[in-house]
Structures are given as structure tokens and as C-alpha cells.
Amino acid sequence: MNRQQKGWQQLFLFSLLPLFLAIFGASGWLWWNWAISPAQLNAAKPQQIQIPPGTATQQIGTKLEQAGLIRSKIAWDLLARYISSQKSNGGFQAGTYELSANQPLNEIAQTIWDGKVIQVSFTIPEGWSLRQMADYFQKEKGWFSSQDFIDAASQIDRKKYPWLPADIPFLEGFLFPETYQVTKERITPQAVVQLMLERFEKTALPVYQKSQNQELNQPKFTLKQWVTLASIVEKEAVVQKERPRIAGVFVSRLLKGMKLESDPTVEYAFGIRQTPDKPLTFAQVRKPSPYNTYATPGLPPTPIAAPALESLKAVLNPESTEYLFFVARYDGTHVFSRTLPEHEAAVVKIRRERQR
């Protein structure tokens, strides 16, 4: 073969190179995505698949194949072996996943390797009681019964949480109010309680512990007293800027030996809720209960709600004030008074304004 013939042959081969690359690329793509179901072309709907703890890699492939998410378990096994060889740490993780036959095999595998399980959220507003939380999980979320949640919140694990007060019968006040993300596997009363308790431990407890190491001109509260008073402040305060002043009023009353006379404690004690058109009656505020601060001096036996971090901080740094009384307006703010006659006059004035 002369030089000219060789030149033409090389030119011909080079001209076929793009075709060879296209064929090889297409076949490689087909092999790589061989575990994709034909439903990919029809925009298959995502579906949930659960991988129990301890499931072997090959068993995962079988479950994916049976669910119609992949077509070939062999392709899964090959890819899983390749991923495992490339990554020194980790592994395919258990959990509930939302996957689609539209996804390439490598994307499905990476999702399971990274443990990108389905997460759901729940929100506990500031000032909610255990009962309100329990009803929320049952009626709005439908995750478990309210009684199961109450039971879980009545289990005090002091070995795991040694900082918890020794004389609390349940975790009222210590389940931190916030929005949480949780995996489906953790939707149990015990797991939810643990998650909220751990958030209190991480967010609120350090604030209290730091205050105990500082020289403050304020009375020292025990952990339970701190959370209890903060829960009352939380229920009384609507406007953020009033929290320190309301805390200051209650601290002053405690120092003077006066009863706190807080309406929310009466509501908590007897499971009632007053409204502007139906305020508490004299009979209700005089009814004996350890939680009724009109009838019983000092703080209630336990917190009455889940206080926000702002209320907890307000109790540690209350406003220094001469006010000893306050009454709520109908816009969320309060009228503060120094003496009982001033307070009674403010109550009459607000009621008259309400009747106009």
C-alpha cells in the first residue's frame, strides 16, 4: 500500500471517528440507565420506597426492581459495586425515599447513598401547652394519638438529661417551641419529644447556665422556677417589647410576697379559656388550685406552656420597674400601674372602651 492509499485510509477512519464516538456514547448511556423503567418516557410519578435498616445492597436492588423504579438489578449491582469502590466512607442508608422511574440509575443510587430520605415538618408555636401539642399531633398531623404524646412527655429520662428538674411530673415547658424537620422514621411520640427536648437543651439551657455564672442584681431562680415564670410571661405578653416589663412586674411581686394573680394560670388550672366577651369570673379566680396564682402564693408547681427564648431571657433580665399591676388592652398591649387604685381605674376604662 503506497503512501497515498494509507493517507486516504487514515482520512476515512478519522471521518468515522465521530460516528464511533456517538455509537459508543449512546450505548454507554443506555447501559448506564438500563435500570430506568420505560415509564421514564411517560413522566412516571414519584413513589415512596422504604429500605429497612440492615438491608443488603443487593436486596436494595431487588426492592427497586420490584417497585418498577429500575429495570435491571444487574445494572444496580454493577453500579453499587463501583460506587462502593470509589467512596472510602459511608454506604447505602436505610430510610424512606421518594424516587421516580424518571431518575437515572446513578441519581437513584446517589440519593440512597447520601441518605436523602423524606422529611416532614411540624411547628409548635410559642406558648402552647402539652395538651395543645398533643391535639395538634393527633388532629392536624394525624401522626399518633394525643394520649400517646402525653404519655411520652411524662417519661422523664434523667439519665440522658440529668439537668432536668427532679420534681417535675412531665415535660411541660421543656419542649422547645419551633419548626422541626423530621424523617418519617422518627414520627413517633418518643422521637418527637426527644427532638424537642434536645432543642431546649441546645438552645435554652446554655442561656440559663451562663446566667448562673454571672453576678446579677436579680434573684436567682432554679431551672424549674425560671421556665415556670417564663411560661407565664409568654402567656401574658403579646408585644415583644413588653416581655421584660411584664417579667419585671412578676419579679417585683414575688420579692414583695404578693400573689402573681395571672389569668393564664387560672385558665391552665381549670382547662378554660377566657375571651374579651367572656372574661374570668370571680368564682373562677377564687377557686383553689396549686396553679391558680390568684388563690395560691408564689409560682405554680410546673410551667404552664412552652416559653419562647425571648421570654426566658426576659426573666433573667427583667426590667427594673415600680409597676406592680397590668391589664390587657384589646390590641395586645397592656396598661401598667403602680398602685391598686390606678390598676382598678385602668380596668374600668378599658372595659368602657370595649363597650363603645
Rank of each mutant, 00 (worst) to 15 (best):
Q225T: 07
K220F: 10
S211C: 12
Q190D: 06
A237V: 02
I232H: 01
E201P: 00
S231C: 07
W226N: 10
Q181K: 14
N213G: 15
E234M: 06
K224P: 09
Q194Y: 04
Q194C: 08
Q194F: 05
N213Q: 15
Q225M: 08
K224L: 09
L195H: 03
T228S: 13
E215C: 12
W226L: 11
A204C: 15
R199M: 15
E236N: 09
L197Y: 03
V233P: 02
L223C: 09
T222M: 06
K184Y: 04
K235E: 04
N213A: 15
V193I: 08
Q218I: 11
L229M: 14
K202A: 10
E215P: 13
E215N: 15
V233Q: 07
V182W: 05
E236F: 00
N213H: 13
A237L: 04
V227A: 05
E234T: 03
T183I: 08
K235M: 10
E236I: 04
K210H: 10
N213M: 15
K184S: 06
E201T: 08
E185H: 13
Q209T: 06
T228N: 09
Q190M: 01
S211I: 07
K220D: 09
P189G: 06
E201C: 07
E236S: 10
L195P: 03
W226T: 09
V238G: 02
L205K: 07
Q225V: 06
P219Y: 07
K202Q: 11
P189T: 03
P206T: 13
Q181G: 06
N213I: 14
E201A: 13
V238A: 02
V182P: 04
Q194N: 14
Q190P: 00
Q212Y: 14
T222I: 05
P219S: 11
Q212M: 14
E185G: 11
E185R: 15
K184H: 04
E236C: 12
E198G: 11
L195E: 05
P206H: 15
A237R: 00
V192K: 00
A230V: 11
M196N: 01
T183Q: 04
Q209W: 10
A191W: 00
F200Q: 05
T228Q: 09
K235N: 05
K202W: 09
Q218F: 06
L205F: 11
K220Y: 07
L197Q: 00
V238P: 02
I187H: 06
Q214S: 13
E185P: 04
Q194P: 14
V227F: 02
L197D: 03
L229R: 00
A230E: 11
V227Y: 01
M196H: 03
Q214P: 13
K202F: 14
A204F: 12
Y208I: 12
L216G: 08
V238M: 06
E215H: 15
Q190W: 00
